[in-house]
Write a protein that binds this DNA or RNA. Structure first.
Lengths: 346, 346
DNA sequence: CCGGATATTGCATACGTAGTCACAACTGCT
DNA sequence: AGCAGTTGTGACTACGTATGCAATATCCGG
């Protein structure tokens, strides 16, 4: 017996013609065999599939994309992957896209200036759609419209251009945190902000400031970090150096809050007895026993699913109107702030 | 004046023919204008480029790939992105590939059974090469050889099939840690291992055990985690429940070590005075002030660069012989173990 | 047994680019 | 002026698939 296991030529990959020849049908029949709803006799399909398996044939996605105008690829733009929040988002996006039979072309930006270079690549690869967790200018966003490439913004919204987006309600979450901090009588607030060009960061800070001002705390000291642990530490040290120790520190993200906690403890401040520290995001390390950070958790799973659902809709129907979906964050009562647990706010 | 800014048809994207017509040249000339070393007159190229800019034309990578047999895409396989170590690796790989003008097609696996599905996608997309930080069977690795797709394994090596790989010397690093722990007189060891199917994890554990055995510690208690913080905590609790508290715990990765530290502290054990805890990897949180983990840092940057260099070589020359590059880890003296700082080992 | 409806099939072509080849236009030289 | 060599150009085709269209095979009721 000669056996009929897989045969494949090491040099050239099998094409639909090779399969057609082996199965004794036309190339069209092979193509149709691989297309779900196509008009093909069951036994023909079986013969084709057997031949295909034998040759290790898979339809070439590149060639297919050329004719169908669909690459099956979604580009994901992420500013800096070391942010600790993004890997989680990326993992979810990747899972969900994979489940929908789409591939992920990943672009991680070291800095903003790379965006245009990356966009060029995106046009070249004819991606079916883009999810961007990186900052885009309005002009850049407009290009997507002009080129007919569906775009969904993740955790940022376009300012003047209408564009689909999902985000977490920064202002609402921040207000919830600050309200509670105020209610328990915190008096000396301080803020650890993100970089000025971070949309969500500024939203969070603005919301906190507005509420504090209304409550009689006009000039809250503020230090700016770059979302990293080290910068959180540095900000806290700076705040401690500049004046009397605050008794409540509002940080623009969890990782900086963690850095701030460590810095506060290094200054022999007990958290939360002497100083309350709150963050934003709800990343995994915030739950670690050494921190147990009080924070707002972004509903990452729901947000990523929403983003992909919106993108898929727009791939099927490119002229769909822009829509913004904003999810509420969930207050996580950790042990890093003196916030009473069970109480009724509305 | 009508202006000569970008003109683009919202419906159809411009092709090289459109550009050719506008520039008054042939399609070939357009193609050559975009190919670096091609034979084209400078002024022709300028005319073409002007027309291209005007139409917003970019060569279509899909169509180009069909003819050149190069997609410019490298697939990256990663088992679980939530591992905290991988995002760093991914970020580095992504940066470096982008610098070499290659795109990243990301596949993140929720579980091993997905590998075959993912490989199918890889064949379909004609990726130029693959870097895998996920576990592959020998049969799967062999397929790469048969199909002529260059493959570089990251932090794992094939068992019976020759295959290019880069990794960090697990055994060597682990031996360095254990040697030092022994030298200072630690006596009651325990191990927090990774899952049994983790190659590097088992290497680390085996190396530690072998050395301990030779030093007169034959049956070191062992608990198995899944590389997560929670599992590290759970393992430590289990070890503490099972017998007398160990005075040195060797963990298969940093995140579990961190969990173990928190669990030990929850049991009122002082780290490192009463119990030394060491990890492996050198992830960012290991450096946080609450942990300051003593660990072996993997030279991620050098490893990723090496992986990409090896891959690039093999894309240019597919018949290149297999090679394994093993990098030594660097001992990071944190504050989680009673290990003397300056001392001469060889 | 016939007409028409339906299910399959193959042929031919399009997708957008790169590259081969032949040829035209120059160049520098004798 | 004539010739070999160089440079630039356009016509044409291949890449591997999907699909419209026409042709064929099959089926059904009358």
């Amino acid at each position: 017996m000669m056996g009929n296991g897989p045969i494949q030529n090491r040099k050239r990959r099998a094409t639909s013609y090779d399969v057609a020849r082996l199965a004794g049908v036309s190339q069209s029949a092979v193509s149709r065999s691989f297309k779900p709803g196509a008009s093909i006799a069951p036994e023909t399909r079986d013969r084709v599939m057997a031949a295909a398996t034998r040759l290790g044939y898979q339809p070439d996605a590149i060639a297919r994309g050329l004719i169908t105008k669909r690459s099956g690829i979604v580009a994901i733009l992420i500013s800096n992957l070391t942010n600790l929040y993004y890997p989680e988002v990326l993992a979810e996006l990747s899972q969900e896209l994979s489940a929908r039979d789409m591939r992920v072309l990943l672009f991680s930006l070291a800095n903003e200036s790379e965006v245009d270079r990356v966009l060029d690549q995106i046009w070249r690869y004819r991606v079916d759609g883009v999810i961007s967790a990186a900052r885009l200018t309005d002009a850049q966003i407009r290009q997507f419209g002009e080129r007919g490439v569906p775009l969904v913004l993740y955790n940022r919204a376009a300012e003047t251009v209408p564009c689909a987006s999902v985000s977490c309600d920064s202002a609402g979450g921040e207000r919830e945190l600050v309200t509670r901090l105020l209610d328990v009588g915190h008096a000396r607030f301080a803020i650890v902000a993100g970089p000025e060009d971070s949309t969500v960061g500024e939203e969070r800070v603005a919301a906190a400031r507005a509420l504090l001002e209304r409550a009689g705390h006009p000039d809250v000291p503020l230090a700016r970090g770059r979302y990293s642990y080290e910068s959180g530490e540095a900000c806290m040290r700076e705040l401690l150096r500049q004046g009397p120790a605050p008794d409540a520190v509002i940080c623009a993200n969890d990782v900086m809050a963690i850095g701030a906690m460590d810095a506060a403890r290094a200054h022999d401040l007990r958290v939360p007895e002497q100083i309350s520290i709150v963050g934003f995001d709800g990343v995994a390390p915030a739950r670690w026993a050494s921190y147990r950070l009080t924070t707002i958790r972004q509903p990452v799973r729901r947000m990523t699913r929403a983003a992909i659902a919106m993108l898929a809709e727009r791939i099927d129907n490119p002229d769909l109107i822009a829509e913004r979906r904003v999810f509420s964050g969930e207050l996580i009562l950790g042990a890093s702030a003196r916030i009473p647990a069970a109480q009724d706010y509305r």
